[in-house]
């Protein structure tokens, strides 16, 4: 393994209608290292979902290029590169292809022509990772939204990917299931050292990620650690703990004036 980043996005632009001058994304560049997790945030219309479609080769950039492991993503390499990445989409129902949990997890493996014995063990392993092994023979109508997203996650994990992409994958879940699936994800990431990109508008998801990429109307606003981003961009609504910290500082409490994650704030307050 070399030092080169796992993913390199170089100056990509895209518009849905080439007769018009409206760009969904313009001149976006960023790198992602192995084992790093990145949250892409921005409001509706910021182009963040377009980015997910470009990264997975569902769309091709008009300008610029995307490199995964040093290989450019294009029609020819798409199939090969998709063995190294997986994506979970927003709607839990529409990405459940098969008639049972384990069949659905196996779907991607079947397409890669993986022999049965290997499939069996990979499917079981992936389901264990997301705590859904007991549900392996259930059909989708017997599962909650959160459980279906766990199955989708297992489907991606079974491919043993280096990069996992989540396209607003947790927004349709209730806060409790969201928190628990994010915790599962964090555990998996540290176990497998896989890279993660999560596209989201949920501020409370942010503390689960190493860095943030902020998009606005198709343009890159900034990239950095949560602390840097929230320090520089006072207009961006921060997670709850940071909101509270700002409030407390304004009210005159003696707290350090920089971004804090929830656990940092709790530690500081309890000193």
């Amino acid at each position: 393994m070399t030092d080169q980043p796992l993913l390199s996005v170089c100056d990509i632009s895209f518009r849905y209608d080439i007769t018009q001058d409206v760009y969904a994304l313009s001149a976006i560049s960023f790198d992602l290292n192995r084992g790093e997790s990145l949250a892409v945030i921005g409001d509706n219309g910021s182009g963040k979902s377009t980015l997910a479609r470009l990264l997975t080769g569902l769309l091709s950039p008009e300008k610029g290029a995307i490199y995964l492991d040093g290989v450019e993503l294009n029609e020819g390499s798409k199939k090969m590169l998709r063995r190294q990445m997986g994506i979970v989409f927003q709607n839990p129902d529409n990405q459940f292809i098969a008639t049972s949990v384990e069949d659905d997890v196996a779907f991607g493996l079947e397409n890669l022509n993986i022999p049965y014995e290997q499939m069996r063990s990979r499917v079981d392993e992936a389901l264990e990772l997301v705590d859904m092994y007991e549900y392996r023979t259930k059909d989708p109508s017997q599962l909650s939204g959160g459980q279906k997203q766990r199955v989708a996650l297992a489907g991606v994990l079974a491919l043993k990917p280096e990069l996992m992409i989540f396209d607003e994958a947790f927004v349709m879940l209730d806060p409790m299931s969201r928190r628990s699936i994010l915790e599962t994800l964090r555990r998996i990431q540290s176990e497998l050292n896989v890279s993660i990109i999560s596209i989201t508008h949920d501020r409370d998801e942010i503390e689960f990620f190493d860095s943030l990429l902020v998009l606005n109307q198709g343009e890159r606003v900034m990239r950095g650690k949560p602390a840097e981003v929230f320090k520089q961009m006072s207009s961006l609504k921060p997670p709850f703990a940071e909101q509270l910290r700002r409030d407390l500082v304004d009210a005159g409490m003696d707290l350090p004036d920089y971004y804090m994650s929830e656990s940092e704030l709790v530690d500081t307050l309890c000193k």
Binding site: D43, N44, Q90, V171, M172, H201, D202, R203, K237
Partner: peptide, 8 residues
């Protein structure tokens, strides 16, 4: 409010 961004 399901599925909307936090402001929405």
């Amino acid at each position: 409010g399901a599925g909307l961004d936090p402001e929405g």
